[in-house]
Nucleic acid binder design. Structure first.
Lengths: 171, 171
DNA sequence: TATTGTTATACTCTATAACTATA
DNA sequence: TATAGTTATAGAGTATAACAATA
C-alpha cells in the first residue's frame, strides 16, 4: 500500500505545485505541508505503536524534559501552541499514564505546574532517542549542506510568519 | 546536565528550537513541524471563518480542481494521504455542501469518481485565491532567493523520506 | 480471490466559550 | 477586575478492521 509509485504520485498537495516561478510562497507552503504530513504520519504511527503516545503528547513532554522544574500550564500552552483548555486534557492523559504530575506551588494558588515524573523522564528519553533515529533514516539521502541551508532558511520563514500574524504573541 | 551522547536529548523540541549543531535531521524536522503548525493554524482558522472549510477538505478540493474529469476515491486517497475510509467521510461532507458529486462510471461498478460541481469550482477558486494572499503576506519578509532554495531543498527531503518509507515497509 | 469503496468504532485533537477560584 | 486553569461542547481528523458489491 505504501509502495511508492514513483511515476504516478507526486504528492504535491493542493493547487498546482509544478508551475515554475509562479506564486512561490504558496508553492513553498504546499510543499512544506505535504512533506510535513508525510513525515508526521510516519512519526505518529511509530510513536503510537512503539510508545503509545501521540505527537502533541510528545511535544508537551519535550517541553517539560528541558525544564526540570516544570512549567506552568499557561506557559506550556504557549510553547506547544495548544489552547489552555486543551492543555488541560493533554495533561490529564499524561498524568493518567503516570508520566507527569501537577503541583500547585505556594504563593499563588491559581497556578498549576506540570513536571515529569521519573517514569516520564525515562519514557521520554527513550522516545526521543528513537525519534532521532527515525529522522536520520528518513533524511539519509539529504546532504548535510542542504539540511543546514534548510534549517537557516526555515528560521527566516518562521520569523516572517510570526511577524505577520496578530501582533504580539511570541513566548 | 549530563553531556553524554546518547542521553543528551537536548530536544529543543517542536516549538522552540534553539540549539547548537547537533542532530541536524531532528532539528530540521522540529523546525519544519513548528513552522508548519504556525502557518497551518492560521490558514485553518481563516478557511474555517471565511469559507467554512477545513484544510483536508481544501486539499481534496484542490486535487479535483486540477482534474476536471474527476478522480476515483482510491486515487484521491493516495494523493491526499488520507485512508480510504476517511476519504469516504470527507467526500460525504463535501457532497452534502454541494461542492462535489459522486458518480459511478459504466464499465466497473465498483468504482466511484468524485468531481467538482460548478459551485465547487467557484468556491474552491475563491479559497485558493485568498489562500495565496495569506501566504504571500505571511512570507513577506522572506527573500525570493531563500524561497527558491527552500523549494528545491524541500523536494530533496521529501524524496528522501518517501524513499526510506517504502524500504521500511517491504518486510 | 482480489479490488473498490463503505461502515463501524474508538480515540484524539481543535476551537470556543462559559465557568471557578484565586489574586 | 483580571488572571490561571477547568469544564463543557461540538465537530473533525485519524487509524484499524470488518464488510458488501463487483470483478
Amino acid at each position: 500500500m505504501a509502495q511508492a509509485d514513483n511515476e504516478t504520485i507526486d504528492l504535491e498537495i493542493i493547487v498546482q505545485d509544478t508551475q515554475e516561478g509562479k506564486k512561490p510562497e504558496l508553492r513553498l507552503w504546499l510543499r512544506m505541508l505535504s512533506t510535513t504530513k508525510l513525515i508526521s504520519q510516519e512519526i505518529r504511527r511509530r510513536l503510537r505503536t512503539e510508545f503509545g503516545a501521540t505527537l502533541p503528547q510528545f511535544d508537551l513532554l519535550a517541553q517539560l524534559y528541558r525544564e526540570k522544574d516544570g512549567l506552568r500550564l499557561g506557559e506550556l500552552s504557549k510553547r506547544t501552541m495548544v489552547t489552555n483548555g486543551n492543555v488541560t486534557g493533554l495533561v490529564e492523559r499524561l498524568e493518567g499514564d503516570g508520566l507527569i504530575v501537577r503541583e500547585t506551588p505556594h504563593g499563588d494558588r491559581r497556578v498549576t505546574v506540570a513536571k515529569l515524573t521519573r517514569k516520564g523522564e525515562d519514557s521520554f528519553s527513550a522516545m526521543a532517542k528513537a525519534h532521532e533515529g527515525w529522522l536520520r533514516d528518513m533524511m539519509a539521502d539529504v546532504e548535510p549542506a542542504a539540511i543546514k541551508v534548510l534549517l537557516d532558511d526555515m528560521s527566516l520563514v518562521k520569523a516572517s510568519v510570526s511577524n505577520h500574524l496578530s501582533e504580539g504573541e511570541s513566548a
